[in-house]
């Protein structure tokens, strides 16, 4: 187990380093001058020079890369070019929106998907199964941003129950803040739930086919008991794997959903930063996201090893 973890950690570090190089190189060649963007069409050349010097953009690329990596290693993420504030501060502000949003969506999708998947498996081949499978297929096929738009149309504009978008800030109280996050969380959760329900159903069906389940059934154990004691723990293995993968999708989906709902989360921050050529923010956030995804995958692998009830090496 230790050897496994060390190997995975080394591989994680390597991937992270590759990510920094990839991001830096890509951003170096992207056209667009942040100084020109900030000062606009009437700026004079000497003013632009002054601003570029102030932003540190006049130094050679390798120097800037070294400074960036040095800063990352010591926890200094640098200062945003457009907002003129430490990136760490900006990220922290956005995380208090994106993390509850992703967790809420994850909880909602799990709560929706696990019972649906179990239900479908237990009704295998019958109407209930077909209904869940249809939901699964539709949930995957419908574009997420379209679903989000329809939610706004129904719940914000027609019914007027929930705000159409925006975020009042946690300082405005938990009620308004959670209200603002409800529709986005649903928009994120439903497509994920569709995938998860399918995986759960398939995993349960696979497990039901295993010999020990047949044996348990043959020994006269009740259907419920078999499901709870044998099937579910085993079926959880692929489900947890998908949950881990979904976190990456949730982060990606958050970029789009946060834009539709005008939520000032991490996804919107990076999307806007790309447009504003705030390269400091883009490279930091992209690398942080990549690190996060890789770390989640590592955790999933570890969880995998921990919950898999089958003997080691049987895979």
């Amino acid at each position: 187990m230790t050897a496994f973890l060390v190997r995975r950690l080394l591989s994680l570090a390597f991937t992270a380093w590759l990510a920094t190089v990839a991001v830096f190189v890509v951003l170096e060649v992207v056209p667009g001058d942040p100084a020109l963007l900030m000062l606009g069409t009437e700026a004079r050349p000497d003013t632009l020079e002054a601003l570029r010097a102030q932003l540190g953009l006049d130094r050679p690329a390798p120097v800037r890369y070294a400074e960036w990596i040095g800063g990352l290693l010591t926890g200094d993420l640098g200062v945003s070019v457009t907002y003129n504030r430490p990136v760490a501060e900006l990220v922290a502000e956005r995380l208090v929106i994106t993390v509850p949003l992703a967790l809420g969506a994850l909880a909602l999708s799990t709560l929706l998907a696990l019972p649906l998947g179990l239900f479908a498996a237990s009704r295998h081949g019958r109407a209930g199964d077909w209904a869940v499978m249809a939901f699964g297929q539709l949930g995957i096929a419908v574009p997420g941003f379209w679903f989000a738009i329809l939610l706004i149309l129904v719940f914000a504009v027609e019914l007027g129950w929930l705000p159409a978008g925006g975020f009042p800030g946690w300082s405005a109280g938990a009620g308004p803040a959670l209200t603002a996050l409800l529709l986005p969380a649903v928009a994120l959760a439903v497509p994920e739930a569709a995938i998860l329900a399918r995986v759960t159903r398939a995993a349960v069906l696979d497990t039901l086919r295993e010999d020990y389940v047949r044996t348990a059934r043959a020994k006269g154990l009740g259907r419920r008991a078999v499901l709870g004691r044998h099937v579910l723990p085993n079926a959880l293995v692929p489900v947890v794997t998908i949950l881990g993968l979904q976190f990456a999708f949730l982060v990606g989906g958050a970029v789009v959903v946060e834009n539709v709902f005008q939520l000032p989360g991490l996804g919107r921050l990076v999307y806007q930063a790309v447009g504003q050529r705030d390269l400091v923010v883009v490279r930091d956030v992209v690398v942080l996201l990549a690190l996060f995804v890789v770390a989640v995958n590592l955790l999933v692998d570890a969880a995998h090893a921990a919950i898999d009830p089958r003997p080691r090496g049987a895979a």
């Binding site: 907002y83 502000e93 956005r94 925006g166 800030g169 939520l263 000032p264 919107r268 921050l269």
Partner: peptide
């Protein structure tokens, strides 16, 4: 008074 970055 205050600035909720990205929103208001």
């Amino acid at each position: 008074a205050r600035w909720v970055a990205g929103d208001r």
